[in-house]
């Protein structure tokens, strides 16, 4: 599903943010990417969403070779990838329902279909009763679940969650992780970055550790993933 082959990314003269990363993620896998801040995790995700291009190396996601991807087709690539941000990126002036609907409006979905889809997605993240609330009326965990709902509303095959628990207390953090696990169970490949060791331990999934722009370890969890390199 995701393949990175000797991917390097450097910014100007500074030392490279990513140095020859190799990573292979299977379909329906749940991978946790661990590393302290500024180790290259965010760069990696930006490469996957094509916010940035690698300096060298190959990236293939869902069968799409990024080298051959034209700029005008980038929006269509992003529609296949759901992204959840640490800072939620919700639109404050829109209700929970409208925020989720927004992602569907962008792809030209009809109002009828939107009215049918949004409650279903809110149900998955456990926010059915908050559809008419504004983000400012929600707790951090609830906001992050809205962001997840928005990311999965279009049923992407890949969900990338960039430090989704970064700003949350432990209880709310677990709410969010549980939602991600549920989504993974439905068949979506999930890529989660975090530096929360507690979550990493309890999740028991494949863990890829990045340090100084390199993959330093790749441990399989109980059920899936590859063995340590």
């Amino acid at each position: 599903m995701i393949l990175l082959d000797r991917v390097t990314k450097s910014y100007g003269r500074k030392s490279a943010a990513l140095k020859g990363i190799n990573l292979h993620v299977e379909n329906k896998e749940f991978v946790v990417i661990v590393g302290q801040s500024k180790t290259g995790k965010s760069t990696l995700l930006k490469l996957l969403t094509r916010e940035e291009k690698p300096s060298s190396g190959k990236i293939i996601v869902g069968g799409i070779d990024y080298d051959k991807l034209k700029d005008k087709n980038v929006p269509y690539l992003r529609r296949k990838i759901g992204v959840v941000f640490q800072d939620f990126k919700l639109i404050q002036k829109k209700t929970v329902f409208e925020n989720v609907a927004y992602a569907l409006e962008i792809v030209g979905m009809g109002n009828k279909e939107i009215k049918h889809t949004v409650p279903r997605v809110l149900n998955i993240v456990g926010l059915s009763n908050k559809a008419d609330s504004y983000p400012s009326e929600l707790s951090g965990g609830e906001r992050q679940r809205v962001a997840i709902a928005r990311a999965i509303a279009r049923q992407p095959r890949i969900l990338i969650a960039d430090e989704p628990t970064g700003n949350l207390d432990p209880k709310h953090a677990w709410d969010v992780i549980e939602v991600l696990e549920r989504i993974n169970k439905y068949g979506t490949t999930v890529l989660l970055t975090t530096h929360n060791q507690d979550i990493v331990q309890k999740l028991n999934r494949r863990i890829v550790t990045i340090q100084d722009g390199k993959v330093v370890s790749d441990k399989a969890g109980n059920a899936r993933g590859r063995q340590t390199i």
């Binding site: 990126k89 992602a103 962008i106 792809v107």
Partner: peptide
């Protein structure tokens, strides 16, 4: 600008 960035990441086309 934040809203526009979100739009981009959600897959909005330049025209949209």
């Amino acid at each position: 600008s934040e809203e526009i960035r979100t739009q981009k990441l959600l897959g909005a086309t330049p025209g949209y």
